[in-house]
Structures are given as structure tokens and as C-alpha cells.
Amino acid sequence: MLVRERITSTGIHAVLIAYSMLALFPLVLIVINSLKSKKAIFRDPTGLPVGEAFSWKGYASVLTNSDFPLYFGNSLIVTCVSLFLILLFGAMASHALSEYRFPGDTFLGLYLILGIMVPIRLGTVALLQLVVDLNLANTLTALILVYTAQGLPIAIFIFTEFLKSVSREIKDSARIDGLSEYRIFFEVVVPLVRPVIATVAVFSMIPIWNDLCFPLILSPGEETRTVTLGVQQFIGQYTVNWGAVLASLSVAILPVLIMYVIFSKQLIRGITSGAVKG
């Protein structure tokens, strides 16, 4: 029995390690090549960045560029604020949708779901005009508003799916205890759906962090540039500074990676605490 278990566990690890290698290999290549000169990248893509091939230039052009901290700051502000708004409004709206019956709730649900169906990008011109009318061109606020609108429908969609499974008895017993609806939401429902919140957070933050379209059109100004837009300066019509692109985008992955780790801890903690309460 014990031997068999050990074999199974070795087998499982073998599968997981094999897939890890598949997932990591291209990433390793990205990091290796971000430390090489452009020529060395193409001369031998798998070669290690040693000797002549080594070049710090890519990172130098990112780190010595005094604007990059600003770009990172902008990206972080936009991503974090949009994420917060998406999670807050998303969770509240879906709680309302799954919990209360009110006139037009199906309509409202459908209306929100409609939002996921058309890439918001289509309305770019219309959105830009709206943003200009509101005097928000070249502000981070414009980006935050658009991203929140873009992320909300899917967030509501996922939340609603999961909230349906939150048992009614728990909420009802809380109600009998005399908790206000707000407290039910924040103290009962939110802890229960913590894993989902983490999931939605991760799900929503990636497209926001990596988006190029809206920064390009809504806020291309020097002061409001995001990281992805900043990286574009290395991509020319005929010549691309791949060293710098790889370096800047390797650095750019770190903040989202940190956020991911934070959220996935939430996921686990949420599940264990949820289990205790449930």
C-alpha cells in the first residue's frame, strides 16, 4: 500500500514537473535573451548570456530611462484601482442579482451580460469622444473607468455563478441574527466567496496590465503612459530593439506576479476559513 502510494505520488510529480518544464522553457528563454545583445539572440537563442553574448544594454535602456518608474506607477495605479472597483461593484451587483428578486432583475442581469459580448474596443472612437467631452483625455481616470466597465460584466458573470452555490441557510440565519444587509454582504458573503474574489481578481488584472489599445488612444501623454505603452518606444517601423523589449517586459511581469501570489494566498486562506464556517 505504502509503496503503491509512493509510486502514484512519483507519477503525479513527474507529470507536474513535465508540464512545468513546458511552461517554463519559453520563459527561461525570454530571461536569457533579455540579457543578450540583439545579435547574440539570433546567433544562438538557447545560448547562455555569457562572454561576448552578454549584454546589460536591454535592462540599462529600461532602468536608466527615468520615465520608467513613472510608467510603472501609472500601470499600478490604473490596475489596482480598476481591480478594486471591479471587485467591489462586481461582488455587490452579483450579490444583489442572486439574492433579491426585484422588478427588472433579469433585464439588468442580461444588460450586464451584454457587456461581455462586444469587445469594448469597438467603441474606441465613441469612448474617446465621451472621454474628451468629460474632459478626461490623458488622465488615468479615463483608463480606470474604461477598464472597470470592461472588466465588470465578466466579473459579475463569474461571481453570480459562484454566489448561487452559497447556501441560503447561512445568509438567512445571519438575517435572523439581525445583521443588516450590508453586514451580511461584507461579513458573511464576502468571506465565503473569497476564493472567487481572488479568481476574478487574477482574471481581471491581466488584460488591464497588458493592455495597449486604450493607453494608446485615451492617454498617450507622457505623464500618463503605462508600461506597455512605454515599451512601444523600442519597437520601430523597421528595427526593433528586442533586448530592451524583452528586458522591459520581463521586469513588467514582476508586479503582476506579486499580485498573483498575494491573490492565490487569499484563495487558499479563503477556502480553509470558508470550510470552517461552512
Binding site: T124, V125, L128, Q129, V132, A137, I217, P220, Q233, Q237
Partner: peptide
């Protein structure tokens, strides 16, 4: 001099022209 990447130029410029920015 505020360039946009060549592949995005037309789309971005047309949007900015339409939006007045």
C-alpha cells in the same frame, strides 16, 4: 516628436483625430 508604433499608427491616429486629441 511623439511617435506611435508603425503598426498601430493609423488606427491610433484616426481615433485621436476623431476624438480631437
Amino acid at each position: 516628436f511623439t511617435p506611435t508604433t508603425a503598426t498601430e499608427y493609423n488606427a491610433a491616429l484616426n481615433a485621436r483625430l476623431a476624438g480631437g486629441t
